[in-house]
């Protein structure tokens, strides 16, 4: 049905030739944009309702009963549904470690929360299909579990800023919301999110459509294709300092794949961009000493590289 609408719009309303490159690009653009926004609106709303049951305060309560290993797995999974904004990373970190959640478990959460979320899932699903979307979510959770466990094994508690351990954390009594309030929260959240990300989505899909219609064989493949054994490291190295949300990065990833880059390399790039960034390092410096901060970045980058190679090898 969407396809019919896109065809009608591109070939009847605008009157483009269905066989021309421009016609094909416009058709593709209209189809993708409508599809992505339909998916975004419905799924973001549903996830926001689910999210209202998982406040960070409740996540903390769940995790403080679990030790390492099981804790890492739970933390990585809860990271998908718990709302997270990098500006609350500091209070979140302090709240977690103060309530006795092990350091490694806290990191599993901090890694999975920005990297794996509903926007990433929808964008990948809409532009690449559900197989790649689920592959990304699955491998993101695995990276968060493994990197968190590794950090936990290193026993680096003394490299957390000293004041963190002395902080007094109160127990917040946050009132339970009624369903009407949850609905209000969810629709407000959906509107806010769409307002924030729509330019990224439109520009990104536009880029994708352009490539779909025009892109020739590209030299990127020569440098970052399957033949270059260092391609995944290179992609992660470029991705780490960059920051973008999933909405901005997925269309770029699509463009890169359109140019023939292998899936492991582009997914590793996307993970590096969303999970690690320069602004995040600056924020986390408030609670971590340099050594732990560097270890965190190093271990997560290494885990992402390993996952990238596994996909390039097995998919």
């Amino acid at each position: 049905m969407l396809k019919t609408f896109a065809d009608y719009f591109a070939f009847q309303v605008i009157g483009l030739d269905a066989k021309s490159r421009l016609g094909e690009a416009v058709d593709f653009f209209v189809y993708d944009t409508v599809k992505i926004f339909l998916l975004l609106t419905t799924i973001v709303y549903v996830v926001a309702v689910i999210r209202s049951y998982f406040s960070p305060e409740r996540t903390r309560r769940i995790l403080s009963h679990n030790r390492e290993y099981i804790g890492n797995v739970l933390a990585a999974l809860l990271g998908i549904v718990t709302p997270f904004c990098s500006c609350s990373a500091v209070p979140l970190f302090i709240g977690f470690v103060e309530s006795g959640i092990p350091l490694g478990v806290t990191f599993s959460f901090l890694i999975s929360s920005p990297m794996v979320n509903e926007v990433a899932l929808i964008m990948l699903w809409g532009l690449f299909g559900w197989k790649i979307a689920l592959t990304y979510v699955g491998s993101g959770v695995v990276v968060a579990i493994l990197a968190g466990m590794a950090i936990g094994r290193l026993h680096m508690e003394r490299y957390v800023q000293d004041y963190v351990w002395e902080m007094k954390v109160g127990a917040a009594e946050i009132q339970e919301q009624s369903f009407r309030e949850k609905h209000q929260y969810a629709s407000g959240y959906t509107k806010e999110l769409l307002k924030k990300i729509w330019p990224y989505v439109v520009v990104g899909i536009g880029l994708g459509a352009f490539i779909h219609g025009y892109a020739p064989e590209d030299l990127l493949v020569r440098y970052a294709g399957r033949e270059n054994p260092l391609a995944v490291q290179l992609a992660v190295l470029i991705g780490v300092p960059l920051y973008s949300n999933a909405a901005g990065i997925v269309p770029v990833v699509q463009a890169l794949m359109g140019k023939g880059l292998p899936i492991g390399t582009v997914l590793a790039f996307m993970m590096a961009v969303t999970a690690l960034s320069f602004p995040e390092a600056v924020i986390l410096k408030n609670v971590l000493k340099t050594r732990l901060l560097a270890t965190f970045f190093g271990i997560v980058a290494a885990a992402i590289i390993i996952v990238g190679y596994m996909f390039n090898t097995f998919l």
Binding site: F84, K168, G170, Y185
Partner: peptide
């Protein structure tokens, strides 16, 4: 902020009681 046990900002506190957190 931590004294109130709030982990997601922004949050609103009225007369020492946290009304909500993590939303505008």
């Amino acid at each position: 902020i931590m004294r109130y046990g709030v982990m997601s900002t922004p949050a609103l506190v009225i007369d020492g009681q946290v009304k909500f957190s993590g939303k505008v």
